[in-house]
C-alpha cells in the first residue's frame, strides 16, 4: 500500500478515537447539566430535603461536604506538608526515605473503600468517635495524605538548589532557608496540590459511607461528633433508595450537577494558578 495512504489511515484512526473520548466526556457532562439544571434553583441550594427527598433542597449536604473538606484538610495539610519537607529537605536519599516514598505511592493506590473500612474500625469504633464529622474528616485526611505529600515533594524539588545555597551562604540557617526562600518559592505548586486534594476529598463516597454520612438529618451538625449529610453520599442515596424514584431523579441530577460544579471549579482554579505560575517563571 502507498505509504501516504497508510499515514492517512493511521492519523484518521487516531483522530476518531481521540474525538470519541472527548465526545463521551462531553455527553456525560451535557447529560447531567441537561437533567440537573431544571432542579437548580434558590430553594434547592438553601433548603433541606422535604417530602421523602422528592422536594426541598440539598443545603445540609453542601454544608456537610464543606465541613468535611475543611476538617480533613486541617489534619492532612500540616501532616502532609511537614512530612514532605522532611523527606525532601532533611531526609536525603537514604533507605528509610526510599521506603517511605514507596509506601506513600502504594497508599495512593489503595481503593477508597478500604480507607472507609479502616476509618470505621479505627476512628468510629476503636477510638469511639462514633459516626461523626471527626471520624469522617480523619478518614478523608488519610485518603488525601499521599496526594498532598507527593505534590508537596514535587513542589519542593522544583525549587532550584541555587536558592538554598544562596541563602545558606548568607549565614541563614537551614530552617530559615526553608521558611523564607524554599516554601515561598514552592507555594504555588503546593497550593495546586491542595486544591487537587480538596477536589478529590469532596467527591469521595466510600470513605464517608461508614464514618460520617447520614441518610437524612433534620438539622445541621453542630459538633464534630455529629453525623452529617454530604453531597456524594446524598447522590448515592437519591439514586438508589427512596419511596418515589421518579420524583427523586431530578433531585439526583441536581446534586450531581452541584458536585461536578464544585470539582470543576477546583480544577479551574488549578489551571489558573498554573498559568500565573508559568508567566512568573518566564520572567526568570
Amino acid at each position: 500500500m502507498d505509504r501516504k495512504i497508510k499515514q492517512r489511515i493511521a492519523f484518521t484512526t487516531f483522530r476518531i478515537f481521540s474525538v470519541s473520548v472527548v465526545l463521551m466526556l462531553v455527553s456525560i457532562l451535557g447529560f447531567i447539566v441537561f437533567n440537573g439544571a431544571k432542579a437548580i434553583n434558590w430553594t434547592f441550594l438553601t433548603a433541606s430535603p422535604t417530602e421523602g427527598m422528592t422536594a426541598g433542597g440539598i443545603f445540609p449536604a453542601i454544608v456537610g461536604t464543606f465541613y468535611l473538606v475543611v476538617g480533613s484538610m486541617l489534619f492532612a495539610l500540616p501532616l502532609g506538608i511537614t512530612a514532605a519537607i522532611y523527606t525532601v529537605e532533611y531526609g536525603g536519599e537514604t533507605r528509610i526515605i526510599r521506603i517511605m516514598r514507596i509506601m506513600t505511592n502504594n497508599l495512593a493506590g489503595v481503593p477508597s473503600v478500604v480507607f472507609g473500612l479502616f476509618g470505621m474500625t479505627l476512628f468510629v469504633n476503636k477510638m469511639g468517635f462514633g459516626s461523626s464529622l471527626l471520624a469522617g474528616s480523619l478518614t478523608l485526611a488519610l485518603l488525601a495524605l499521599p496526594l498532598i505529600i507527593r505534590t508537596t515533594e514535587e513542589a519542593l524539588k522544583a525549587v532550584p538548589d541555587s536558592y538554598r545555597t544562596g541563602s545558606l551562604a548568607l549565614g541563614a540557617t537551614k530552617l530559615t532557608t526553608i521558611r523564607r526562600v524554599v516554601l515561598p518559592a514552592a507555594f504555588p505548586n503546593i497550593l495546586t496540590g491542595i486544591i487537587l486534594s480538596v477536589g478529590r476529598v469532596s467527591g469521595e463516597t466510600a470513605p464517608i459511607l461508614f464514618t460520617v454520612a447520614a441518610y437524612f438529618l433534620p438539622h445541621l451538625p453542630d459538633s464534630i461528633f455529629d453525623q452529617a449529610m454530604a453531597l456524594p453520599y446524598h447522590l448515592y442515596v437519591l439514586a438508589t433508595s427512596g419511596t418515589d424514584m421518579e420524583a427523586t431523579r431530578p433531585m439526583a441530577y441536581g446534586t450531581a450537577l452541584v458536585l461536578i460544579f464544585i470539582v470543576l471549579l477546583m480544577n479551574a482554579l488549578v489551571s489558573l494558578l498554573r498559568n500565573s505560575l508559568k508567566n512568573k517563571n518566564s520572567n526568570e
Binding site: 532550584p160 541555587s162 536558592y163 545555597t165 544562596g166 541563602s167 545558606l168 551562604a169 548568607l170 549565614g171 541563614a172 540557617t173 526562600v181 515561598p184 518559592a185 512568573k280 526568570e284
Partner: peptide, 19 residues
C-alpha cells in the same frame, strides 16, 4: 552560620531569590 556571615560567597551562575 556565623562563619558564613564573615565569609561571603558569589556563585558562578547569578542566583537571586524570587523576590
Amino acid at each position: 552560620d556565623e562563619l558564613r556571615k564573615e565569609v561571603g560567597m558569589v556563585f558562578q551562575k547569578p542566583n537571586p531569590f524570587p523576590k
